[in-house]
Design a protein around this nucleic acid. Structure first.
Lengths: 108, 108
DNA sequence: TCGAGGTATCTTGCATTGCAAGATAGTGAA
DNA sequence: TTCACTATCTTGCAATGCAAGATACCTCGA
Protein backbone atom coordinates (compact mmCIF):
# COMPACT_ATOMS: atom_id res chain seq x y z
CA UNK A 1 0.00 0.00 0.00
CA UNK A 2 1.33 3.37 -1.08
CA UNK A 3 2.35 5.15 2.12
CA UNK A 4 2.01 8.56 0.50
CA UNK A 5 -1.73 8.18 -0.02
CA UNK A 6 -2.23 7.99 3.74
CA UNK A 7 -0.66 11.35 4.51
CA UNK A 8 -3.26 13.48 6.21
CA UNK A 9 -5.94 10.86 5.70
CA UNK A 10 -4.84 8.90 8.75
CA UNK A 11 -5.50 11.90 10.98
CA UNK A 12 -8.98 12.22 9.52
CA UNK A 13 -9.70 8.52 10.04
CA UNK A 14 -8.62 8.65 13.68
CA UNK A 15 -10.82 11.68 14.36
CA UNK A 16 -13.79 10.03 12.65
CA UNK A 17 -13.40 6.84 14.70
CA UNK A 18 -13.04 8.79 17.94
CA UNK A 19 -16.20 10.67 17.01
CA UNK A 20 -18.08 7.36 17.16
CA UNK A 21 -16.76 6.42 20.59
CA UNK A 22 -13.68 6.60 22.78
CA UNK A 23 -10.95 4.22 21.73
CA UNK A 24 -7.41 3.38 22.89
CA UNK A 25 -4.37 3.45 20.64
CA UNK A 26 -3.95 -0.26 20.06
CA UNK A 27 -7.65 -0.50 19.28
CA UNK A 28 -7.35 2.25 16.66
CA UNK A 29 -4.45 0.42 15.03
CA UNK A 30 -6.56 -2.72 14.73
CA UNK A 31 -9.75 -1.01 13.60
CA UNK A 32 -7.98 0.94 10.87
CA UNK A 33 -5.93 -2.11 9.86
CA UNK A 34 -9.17 -3.81 8.91
CA UNK A 35 -9.61 -1.13 6.24
CA UNK A 36 -6.03 -0.57 5.10
CA UNK A 37 -2.50 -1.33 6.30
CA UNK A 38 -1.28 0.84 9.12
CA UNK A 39 1.56 0.63 11.64
CA UNK A 40 1.82 1.55 15.30
CA UNK A 41 4.71 3.86 14.54
CA UNK A 42 2.26 6.06 12.68
CA UNK A 43 -0.57 6.07 15.21
CA UNK A 44 1.16 6.85 18.49
CA UNK A 45 3.02 9.96 17.32
CA UNK A 46 -0.19 11.12 15.63
CA UNK A 47 -2.23 10.65 18.81
CA UNK A 48 0.32 12.62 20.78
CA UNK A 49 0.11 15.46 18.27
CA UNK A 50 -3.69 15.47 18.36
CA UNK A 51 -3.58 15.73 22.13
CA UNK A 52 -1.02 18.55 22.00
CA UNK A 53 -3.30 20.38 19.56
CA UNK A 54 -6.34 19.90 21.78
CA UNK A 55 -8.30 17.73 19.36
CA UNK A 56 -8.45 14.87 21.85
CA UNK A 57 -8.11 14.29 25.59
CA UNK A 58 -6.91 11.09 27.26
CA UNK A 59 -7.57 8.96 30.31
CA UNK A 60 -6.13 5.69 31.55
CA UNK A 61 -8.17 2.59 32.20
CA UNK A 62 -7.05 -0.70 33.67
CA UNK A 63 -7.33 -3.87 31.61
CA UNK A 64 -7.43 -7.53 32.63
CA UNK A 65 -5.76 -8.56 29.38
CA UNK A 66 -2.59 -6.51 29.61
CA UNK A 67 -1.18 -3.15 30.64
CA UNK A 68 -3.42 -0.13 31.20
CA UNK A 69 -5.05 1.35 28.13
CA UNK A 70 -4.88 5.01 27.26
CA UNK A 71 -8.26 6.03 25.91
CA UNK A 72 -8.69 8.99 23.57
CA UNK A 73 -11.81 11.14 23.53
CA UNK A 74 -12.71 13.67 20.83
CA UNK A 75 -13.04 17.29 22.00
CA UNK A 76 -15.34 19.90 20.52
CA UNK A 77 -12.36 21.37 18.74
CA UNK A 78 -11.47 17.92 17.43
CA UNK A 79 -14.97 17.59 16.02
CA UNK A 80 -14.53 20.79 14.06
CA UNK A 81 -11.16 19.66 12.74
CA UNK A 82 -12.71 16.34 11.75
CA UNK A 83 -15.58 18.00 9.89
CA UNK A 84 -13.19 20.29 8.01
CA UNK A 85 -10.93 17.39 7.04
CA UNK A 86 -13.82 15.21 5.90
CA UNK A 87 -15.22 18.03 3.74
CA UNK A 88 -11.80 18.67 2.18
CA UNK A 89 -11.20 14.99 1.62
CA UNK A 90 -14.51 14.43 -0.12
CA UNK A 91 -14.00 17.43 -2.37
CA UNK A 92 -10.46 16.35 -3.18
CA UNK A 93 -11.35 12.70 -3.79
CA UNK A 94 -14.18 13.73 -6.12
CA UNK A 95 -11.81 15.97 -8.10
CA UNK A 96 -9.24 13.20 -8.40
CA UNK A 97 -11.81 10.62 -9.44
CA UNK A 98 -13.11 13.00 -12.09
CA UNK A 99 -9.62 13.44 -13.46
CA UNK A 100 -8.90 9.72 -13.46
CA UNK A 101 -12.15 8.98 -15.24
CA UNK A 102 -11.41 11.65 -17.84
CA UNK A 103 -14.49 13.71 -17.05
CA UNK A 104 -14.54 17.32 -18.16
CA UNK A 105 -14.22 19.58 -15.14
CA UNK A 106 -17.08 21.98 -14.46
CA UNK A 107 -15.31 24.95 -12.92
CA UNK A 108 -12.45 27.03 -14.31
CA UNK B 1 -6.40 22.65 0.43
CA UNK B 2 -4.66 20.14 2.65
CA UNK B 3 -1.25 19.59 1.06
CA UNK B 4 -0.90 16.18 2.69
CA UNK B 5 -3.82 14.70 0.76
CA UNK B 6 -1.95 15.29 -2.50
CA UNK B 7 1.06 13.18 -1.57
CA UNK B 8 1.37 10.43 -4.11
CA UNK B 9 -1.88 11.41 -5.78
CA UNK B 10 -0.20 14.13 -7.81
CA UNK B 11 2.10 11.58 -9.43
CA UNK B 12 -0.90 9.46 -10.37
CA UNK B 13 -2.73 12.46 -11.84
CA UNK B 14 0.24 13.43 -13.98
CA UNK B 15 0.61 9.89 -15.31
CA UNK B 16 -3.12 9.70 -16.09
CA UNK B 17 -3.06 12.99 -17.98
CA UNK B 18 0.04 11.98 -19.93
CA UNK B 19 -1.74 8.75 -20.80
CA UNK B 20 -4.36 10.80 -22.63
CA UNK B 21 -1.85 12.79 -24.67
CA UNK B 22 1.57 14.40 -24.46
CA UNK B 23 1.63 17.56 -22.38
CA UNK B 24 4.23 20.10 -21.29
CA UNK B 25 4.88 21.06 -17.68
CA UNK B 26 3.11 24.39 -17.62
CA UNK B 27 0.11 22.79 -19.29
CA UNK B 28 -0.03 20.10 -16.61
CA UNK B 29 0.01 22.75 -13.90
CA UNK B 30 -2.96 24.48 -15.50
CA UNK B 31 -4.93 21.33 -16.26
CA UNK B 32 -4.56 20.00 -12.73
CA UNK B 33 -5.24 23.44 -11.24
CA UNK B 34 -8.71 23.27 -12.74
CA UNK B 35 -9.40 20.30 -10.47
CA UNK B 36 -7.50 21.26 -7.31
CA UNK B 37 -4.83 23.73 -6.24
CA UNK B 38 -1.33 22.87 -7.31
CA UNK B 39 1.95 24.76 -7.58
CA UNK B 40 4.78 24.69 -10.12
CA UNK B 41 7.25 23.88 -7.39
CA UNK B 42 5.51 20.51 -7.04
CA UNK B 43 5.22 19.64 -10.71
CA UNK B 44 8.70 20.27 -12.07
CA UNK B 45 10.61 18.22 -9.51
CA UNK B 46 8.03 15.47 -9.94
CA UNK B 47 8.43 15.45 -13.73
CA UNK B 48 12.19 15.22 -13.36
CA UNK B 49 11.80 12.23 -11.05
CA UNK B 50 9.39 10.51 -13.43
CA UNK B 51 11.90 10.95 -16.24
CA UNK B 52 14.75 9.63 -14.09
CA UNK B 53 12.64 6.60 -13.27
CA UNK B 54 11.78 5.98 -16.93
CA UNK B 55 8.06 6.58 -16.61
CA UNK B 56 8.17 9.42 -19.13
CA UNK B 57 10.41 10.69 -21.92
CA UNK B 58 10.73 14.30 -23.04
CA UNK B 59 11.20 16.36 -26.17
CA UNK B 60 11.41 20.08 -26.82
CA UNK B 61 9.07 21.97 -29.11
CA UNK B 62 9.20 25.61 -30.13
CA UNK B 63 6.32 27.89 -29.25
CA UNK B 64 5.23 31.22 -30.73
CA UNK B 65 3.86 32.35 -27.37
CA UNK B 66 6.98 32.05 -25.24
CA UNK B 67 10.03 29.91 -24.60
CA UNK B 68 10.30 26.36 -25.90
CA UNK B 69 8.04 23.82 -24.26
CA UNK B 70 9.28 20.54 -22.85
CA UNK B 71 6.73 17.89 -23.68
CA UNK B 72 6.37 14.73 -21.63
CA UNK B 73 5.31 11.41 -23.10
CA UNK B 74 4.24 8.34 -21.13
CA UNK B 75 6.38 5.23 -21.63
CA UNK B 76 5.18 1.65 -21.41
CA UNK B 77 6.70 1.44 -17.97
CA UNK B 78 4.91 4.64 -17.02
CA UNK B 79 1.63 3.10 -18.11
CA UNK B 80 2.18 0.18 -15.77
CA UNK B 81 3.03 2.50 -12.89
CA UNK B 82 -0.08 4.53 -13.65
CA UNK B 83 -2.32 1.45 -13.65
CA UNK B 84 -0.87 0.26 -10.36
CA UNK B 85 -1.32 3.64 -8.73
CA UNK B 86 -4.88 4.03 -9.97
CA UNK B 87 -5.82 0.59 -8.68
CA UNK B 88 -4.25 1.32 -5.29
CA UNK B 89 -5.89 4.72 -5.12
CA UNK B 90 -9.35 3.40 -5.87
CA UNK B 91 -9.01 0.64 -3.30
CA UNK B 92 -7.70 3.07 -0.70
CA UNK B 93 -10.32 5.76 -1.40
CA UNK B 94 -13.10 3.17 -1.13
CA UNK B 95 -11.74 1.95 2.21
CA UNK B 96 -11.52 5.50 3.56
CA UNK B 97 -15.00 6.40 2.36
CA UNK B 98 -16.36 3.28 4.01
CA UNK B 99 -14.73 4.24 7.28
CA UNK B 100 -15.95 7.83 7.09
CA UNK B 101 -19.49 6.69 6.39
CA UNK B 102 -19.36 4.26 9.29
CA UNK B 103 -19.94 1.18 7.15
CA UNK B 104 -18.99 -2.18 8.58
CA UNK B 105 -15.93 -3.50 6.83
CA UNK B 106 -16.29 -6.73 4.91
CA UNK B 107 -12.84 -8.31 5.31
CA UNK B 108 -10.92 -9.08 8.49
C1' DT C 1 10.18 -21.95 36.28
C1' DC C 2 10.72 -20.26 31.88
C1' DG C 3 9.58 -18.88 27.43
C1' DA C 4 6.45 -17.51 23.90
C1' DG C 5 2.81 -14.85 22.29
C1' DG C 6 -0.70 -11.49 22.65
C1' DT C 7 -1.67 -6.96 24.59
C1' DA C 8 -0.29 -2.17 25.08
C1' DT C 9 2.57 2.11 24.93
C1' DC C 10 6.36 4.98 23.37
C1' DT C 11 10.69 6.98 20.91
C1' DT C 12 14.20 7.83 17.30
C1' DG C 13 15.66 8.65 12.85
C1' DC C 14 14.70 8.14 8.04
C1' DA C 15 12.41 8.64 3.42
C1' DT C 16 9.24 10.85 0.69
C1' DT C 17 6.93 14.56 -1.23
C1' DG C 18 4.40 19.11 -1.84
C1' DC C 19 5.38 23.94 -1.49
C1' DA C 20 7.11 28.75 -1.08
C1' DA C 21 10.33 31.57 -2.93
C1' DG C 22 13.29 32.92 -6.11
C1' DA C 23 16.05 32.78 -10.56
C1' DT C 24 16.06 32.76 -15.62
C1' DA C 25 14.25 33.82 -20.13
C1' DG C 26 11.17 34.37 -24.46
C1' DT C 27 7.10 37.08 -26.38
C1' DG C 28 4.04 40.89 -27.21
C1' DA C 29 1.39 44.93 -25.84
C1' DA C 30 0.98 49.44 -23.43
C1' DT D 1 11.06 50.16 -21.04
C1' DT D 2 7.98 48.14 -18.42
C1' DC D 3 4.55 44.95 -17.54
C1' DA D 4 2.15 40.60 -17.98
C1' DC D 5 1.96 36.15 -19.64
C1' DT D 6 4.31 32.08 -20.91
C1' DA D 7 7.67 28.56 -19.58
C1' DT D 8 11.36 26.05 -17.01
C1' DC D 9 14.20 25.05 -13.02
C1' DT D 10 16.44 24.91 -8.18
C1' DT D 11 16.89 25.20 -3.09
C1' DG D 12 15.54 24.39 1.39
C1' DC D 13 11.75 23.61 4.42
C1' DA D 14 7.69 21.34 6.62
C1' DA D 15 4.87 17.55 7.33
C1' DT D 16 3.92 12.85 8.01
C1' DG D 17 4.03 7.64 7.72
C1' DC D 18 7.10 3.94 8.84
C1' DA D 19 10.70 0.61 10.37
C1' DA D 20 12.96 -0.71 14.21
C1' DG D 21 13.58 -1.10 18.70
C1' DA D 22 12.59 -0.56 23.82
C1' DT D 23 9.53 -1.35 27.74
C1' DA D 24 6.13 -3.86 30.33
C1' DC D 25 1.78 -6.50 31.65
C1' DC D 26 -0.77 -10.92 31.30
C1' DT D 27 -1.73 -15.92 30.37
C1' DC D 28 -0.72 -20.44 28.93
C1' DG D 29 1.96 -24.46 28.02
C1' DA D 30 6.33 -27.11 28.33
Amino acid sequence: MNAQFKKGVLEMCVLVLLGERDRYGYELVQDISHRFEISEGSIYPLLRRLRDEGSVVTYLQESAEGPARKYYSLTEKGGIVRDDLVAEWQEFAAAVNGLVKGEKHAEG
